[in-house]
Computed example of a mutant assay.
Amino acid sequence: MPRKLNDPSPLGAQSGDGSHVSRRLFTLGGLAGLALPLAGCYTVGLPGQPPLPDETFDYDAAYAELPDGEFTWPAINYKAFDRKFLRQVVDFKSREKPGTIIVDPYNNFLYWTLSPKKALRYGIGVGRAGFAWSGEALIRVKREHPIWRPPREMIARKPSLERYWKDGYPAGLKNPLGARAMDLWQGSVDTLYRIHGTNQPSSIGKSVSSGCIRMWQQDVIDLFERVPLRTKVIVLQKDEEDSEA
């Protein structure tokens, strides 16, 4: 049965970039993973994860320049964006098990469910691949500082990218996958669909030309530190997008 999920707040290749998939509900299966107490009595996620945003949350610190191994990700000018795209806990009704990721590509939100009535929401940017998918999968691979290989259809449009097909585009500030990538699989098959960072922070809250589900570097690192492997993910189709309660 179609899932109807409500958020009362305002709505506003090996990389997975540019892959062709169908326009149907993307339903991904899996286990919620390890549990531990969190603020507000939530019991989902990996141990040692960051605190949840609350009314005293310091967004200046959350979106500040971020050292990360050999790289330092630039600060996000978050005040230039609609506040709805900032990381925040929202009212969100869902029948899914806490710890599920639910993506609404049509309103540019990603939700990580905390309870039947609450979720941690992030703003996202969505490429063509993010609107075109069907099937079931799990987060089977989590990659820090991923390399990126352009899909063949992108190389066909821009032949100069062929040099990155074999060894990939190296990790770093210019890498299209950004700081982290979470790869979604169907059984033993890589779907080429990813949740990943972006080197184009202005794309958050927008539909963009390429990519799957892209997040600010600070946000994708935050999500990466919360979700275990085999996390269940659901990507909604147009007639299942959230509506106000």
Rank of each mutant, 00 (worst) to 15 (best):
S19R: 12
V90C: 09
H196Q: 07
L11N: 02
Y59W: 11
R140S: 12
D239R: 10
L46V: 06
E136K: 10
K117D: 14
S115Q: 04
Y63K: 05
V227F: 11
N199C: 10
P159N: 03
P105Q: 05
Y169M: 11
R163H: 04
R87G: 04
P10R: 12
T27L: 09
G211E: 08
L34A: 12
W185L: 00
G99P: 10
K232V: 05
R157H: 11
V126M: 12
R121S: 11
T43S: 13
K232D: 05
C212I: 01
G12I: 10
R121K: 15
E136Q: 13
G45L: 01
S94M: 00
H20T: 14
A80D: 15
L192G: 05
S209T: 14
T72E: 08
T100W: 08
P170C: 08
P37T: 00
Q217N: 15
I124C: 04
S203F: 01
D7W: 11
S115G: 09
A181K: 04
Q14N: 14
S15M: 03
V235D: 01
W185N: 02
I101M: 12
P170D: 04
N77P: 00
F109H: 14
G125A: 15
G211D: 11
Y122Q: 10
D7V: 01
D190I: 02
H20M: 06
P50L: 07
N6R: 15
Y59L: 12
A62M: 07
V90D: 01
R230W: 14
R121W: 03
S22Q: 13
V89M: 06
V220P: 05
W73G: 02
Y122A: 08
L28A: 12
G168A: 07
G33A: 00
G168Q: 00
G135Q: 05
G125I: 09
E96R: 11
P10I: 06
K117S: 14
Q200L: 11
Y106K: 11
D167V: 09
P105A: 11
P8A: 11
V208P: 06
L86H: 15
G123Q: 07
A61K: 15
G99D: 02
E241W: 02
Y78R: 03
P47W: 06
P10F: 06
V220F: 04
Q186R: 13
P150I: 03
Q88C: 05
G48N: 14
E241T: 14
L184Y: 06
E70F: 05
P53S: 08
A35F: 08
V89C: 13
W133F: 13
T113N: 04
K166T: 12
D91V: 04
A119K: 06
A137Q: 11
